[in-house]
């Protein structure tokens, strides 16, 4: 067995992050193993009115081009997705995305809880959830839902976070499988990737 006690039954990875998470996300994406098989679905807090630039900035160093999905777009193996500005991003049972303009949650649209929660509902124990640095409690409930449905949960080591409210809120309401630094999360993806080879 590998050091994270993983297996190759996972179907998707979902990542949430807010203030201070950008560098971490860039690092993870830039060191992602080539051909990493699972879709990665990201919900990162962002300026509501800035539609452009973010996905480009993330893609710059990323191994895989990051895209903002269209409403009802099907989730594909090995793709990396980012919740678009000013929309909540949900995953539906048929493995496709749905966008919505519902009220903000925790002052955020996109809200991490919505993306994490719907992923948990659809992928159940076949999901890996990762919550990074951030200044509010968005995502904590979503991480709990992932854990409650049998998924695997990781938060960024609070001491490494620029702002640790987000991972700490998750740690406070649910059991988190791993508390890791970004470098360790990078390794985690490498270990996980090996299981699919």
């Amino acid at each position: 067995m590998n050091k994270f006690n993983l297996n190759n039954s996972y179907k998707a990875v979902v990542i949430g992050g807010s203030a201070g998470s950008f560098q971490g996300v860039v690092k993870i994406l830039s060191q992602l193993p080539k051909g990493f098989p699972l879709p990665i679905i990201m919900c990162l807090h962002r300026l509501k009115h800035v539609r452009h630039g973010f996905v480009e900035a993330l893609s710059l160093k990323s191994v895989v081009q990051v895209t903002e999905p269209y409403d009802k777009e099907t989730i594909k193996r090995g793709s990396v997705y980012l919740a678009p500005a000013n929309y909540h991003l949900s995953v539906e049972l048929g493995h496709y995305f749905a966008l919505s303009t519902e009220e903000m949650i925790n002052n955020s649209r996109p809200a991490i809880d919505i993306t994490l929660g719907t992923c948990a509902y659809v992928f159940k124990d076949k999901l890996i959830g990762i919550l990074l640095s951030g200044a509010n409690k968005d995502g904590a409930l979503g991480m709990k839902q992932i854990k409650d449905r049998g998924g695997f949960t990781i938060v960024q080591e609070p001491s490494e976070c620029m702002i640790d409210t987000m991972p700490k809120s998750a740690l406070a309401i649910t059991q988190i499988d791993q508390v890791l630094k970004i470098d360790q999360i990078v390794n985690f993806f490498k270990e996980l990737d090996k299981l699919y080879r």
Binding site: K72, S90, V91, E92, L93, A98, S100, E102, T118, Y121
Partner: peptide, 9 residues
Amino acid sequence: YAMSSFKRR
């Protein structure tokens, strides 16, 4: 209607 948002509503 799309199920995820219908459910939340």
